[in-house]
């Protein structure tokens, strides 16, 4: 398979406000193929989000190489979409303006951008809400706006940082199914960061387990469950449970390490 994203020996250090150096990622290697749906799981604070920031070009790597479609990342690469963990839709723009922002930034006329935006708003099930402001929407609806906002640019790489973690369980599996549907219709590679192993397995082709910080790839597993999948039901399949147990054995140790550290830090 052709690689869409390659991280080789990537280390990322941050300066802490007190003047110290914090290492978020250490010697991380990761390859994600074109059209592949990958999940990245790991304990809190292991540098999952940092990985996405490096791929998106929002943060430079301290050491190592980050390639997107065989080009080293300098600035934001073309064809990247990014769904943030926090709400990042623009509160002063209506749903329509929010979704139309991407095409407009890429030089489309306001009118054409709006036409395309209407189409995408309908695709994420928000038809009729075009003129609402984000504060008038529920959390799930705002996530739909964010999804349409990212997908309208037809990204070849979609980075998702725990996008559904703030949603209730029902809304969440609904959104996950819709995401899979929209992804299947595109040929995008997805990197989906989550702390929820069940979500990771039910969505993805491959799961990367990251160690407790400083993060590096501990192992990666192929998820050979058939597609199309129904996220709400797939978790009852025996094979799903087998995969879950296998990955959980790996992940559990890291979660414990991270937990012990936090306890010590708090004491």
């Amino acid at each position: 398979m052709q690689p869409a994203i390659e991280l080789r020996g990537v280390t990322k250090r941050f300066l802490t406000p007190s003047g110290g150096v914090y290492t978020a990622l250490r010697e991380l290697d990761m390859t994600i193929g074109v059209g592949e749906f990958c999940a990245v799981v790991g304990p809190t604070g292991c540098g999952k989000s940092t990985t996405l920031a490096l791929i998106s070009g929002l943060e430079p790597a301290s050491e190592g190489e980050v390639d997107v479609f065989n080009n080293p990342v300098k600035g934001i690469p073309d064809g990247i979409g990014y769904m943030f963990q926090a709400d990042a839709v623009f509160p002063w723009k209506t749903v329509l303006e929010n979704v139309a922002a991407g095409p407009r930034y890429h030089g489309l006329s306001s009118r054409d951008a709006r036409d395309r935006a209407r189409d995408w708003i309908a695709r994420v099930g928000l038809a009729g809400f075009e003129d609402r402001y984000p504060y008038q929407l529920s959390g799930g609806m705002r996530k739909r706006v964010a999804l349409a906002q990212s997908l309208i640019n037809e990204p070849r790489i979609l980075l998702m940082d725990e996008p559904f973690s703030a949603l209730d369980v029902q809304t969440r599996s609904l959104m996950e199914n819709e995401l899979l549907g929209l992804w299947a219709a595109s040929s995008a590679s997805v990197v989906f960061v989550t702390h929820d192993l069940e979500e990771a397995i039910s969505l993805s082709d491959r799961v990367f387990v990251i160690t407790a910080g400083p993060g590096t790839v501990k192992s990666n597993y192929k998820v050979d469950l058939p597609r199309p999948r129904n996220v709400a039901e797939i978790r009852f399949q025996p094979h799903f449970i087998e995969i879950y147990e296998e990955i959980w054995k790996d992940l559990k140790d890291e979660v414990l390490v991270s937990y012990e550290r936090q306890k010590r830090g708090a004491a």
């Binding site: 998106s56 929002l58 934001i76 990247i80 979409g81 990014y82 943030f84 926090a86 709400d87 990042a88 839709v89 623009f90 922002a101 991407g102 930034y105 890429h106 906002q149 990212s150 640019n153």
Partner: peptide, 13 residues
């Protein structure tokens, strides 16, 4: 909000 700036930059602003 830095998230909003990052989002706009990713969208191509």
């Amino acid at each position: 909000d830095r998230n909003l700036v990052a989002n706009a930059r990713i969208l191509g602003a």
